[in-house]
């Protein structure tokens, strides 16, 4: 996959969950900047709302209550969004060139006009992120590309009051976080995630896969079946030609005598 990112250009997030207060400025700022309508939600006994990403919700906070003992409870907040994977499952399966593309900053961006609504990216994402809007076009966090091109950080990072969402040069953010001894998630997974987390516990506690990977069947499809299939196609044509010139066709003998002789 032609998906090379220059590390020195790559921008990304460092999401330091130890600083997150679950205020959800990120959620609202994103909606505001990207001019997205509100989702209709229902109170179901949790602060977490909407309960999942939607075509009009590019990032959201997961509210995770952990600890069962009275007095032993904790409340974790995790910003969930497109991870802008270095090896992106969505880009791997996308059949429409330019629909999902990599910017020089390493952003997995998209062009709705080129999206052909196949929804393969929905299935191929290791984090179940892409959504489809009412026009049946892909919809997800694009790191506020329009802001980036103007030299501004994404709206969510700009709105974050506590420094949970740090945006900048990915390698610097990682180096800084590692220098303070933070446990990082996503530094090397999937070619390095564009959204690296500093977590306060194992990833599973936050509902993140311990070792994120492109789904096995997607890998088999794209990396095994596809090349072998192409080989098989040409191989079978080749084999037929070879058969024709070596063994040859089964010609029907026109002479009836010969036919009769067989009897």
């Amino acid at each position: 996959m032609a998906d090379a990112i220059k590390a020195e250009n790559r921008k990304g997030f460092l999401v330091d969950t130890s600083r997150c207060i679950g205020c959800r400025s990120c959620q609202v700022a994103c909606k505001q900047w990207n001019k997205m309508a509100a989702d209709k939600t229902v109170e179901q006994g949790s602060y977490e709302n909407p309960r999942d990403l939607t075509p009009a919700l590019y990032n959201r906070i997961r509210f995770l209550e952990v600890g069962e003992e009275p007095g032993g409870v904790n409340w974790l907040f995790l910003n969930e969004r497109c991870m802008h994977c270095g090896e992106a499952g969505c880009m791997k399966v996308c059949p429409s060139p330019g629909a999902l593309y990599r910017t020089k900053e390493g952003v997995v961006a998209y062009n709705k006009e080129k999206c052909i609504s196949c929804k393969y990216c929905v299935s191929a994402c290791p984090f179940n992120v892409p959504r489809y809007d009412s026009d049946d076009k892909v919809s997800k966090c694009h790191l506020c590309l329009d802001r980036l091109s103007g030299g501004m950080p994404p709206a969510c990072a700009k709105a974050c009051p506590t420094g949970t969402l740090k945006f900048g040069k990915r390698s610097d953010l990682i180096a800084d976080a590692q220098a303070t001894g933070k446990q990082l998630y996503g530094v090397n997974d999937l070619g390095g995630l564009g959204v690296v987390y500093a977590l306060e516990g194992p990833p599973e506690r936050y509902g993140l896969p311990a070792t994120p990977h492109i789904p096995l069947s997607i890998f088999l499809w794209k990396d095994v079946i596809k090349p072998l299939g192409i080989l098989g196609f040409w191989g079978s044509i080749g084999a037929m030609l070879l058969h024709y010139v070596t063994i040859g066709p089964k010609k029907i003998d026109e002479a009836p005598e010969k036919e009769e002789r067989h009897e």
Partner: peptide, 29 residues
């Protein structure tokens, strides 16, 4: 502001699992 109503759509009451059990209340009731 619909964006904010999206985040907290209606009145809720917070209570402990102990009280909920006592009153046969389930989360979301």
């Amino acid at each position: 502001t619909p964006w904010l109503l999206e985040l907290q759509p209606r009145l809720f009451v917070e209570l402990s699992p102990e009280l909920a059990k006592e009153k046969s209340i389930k989360n979301g009731d």
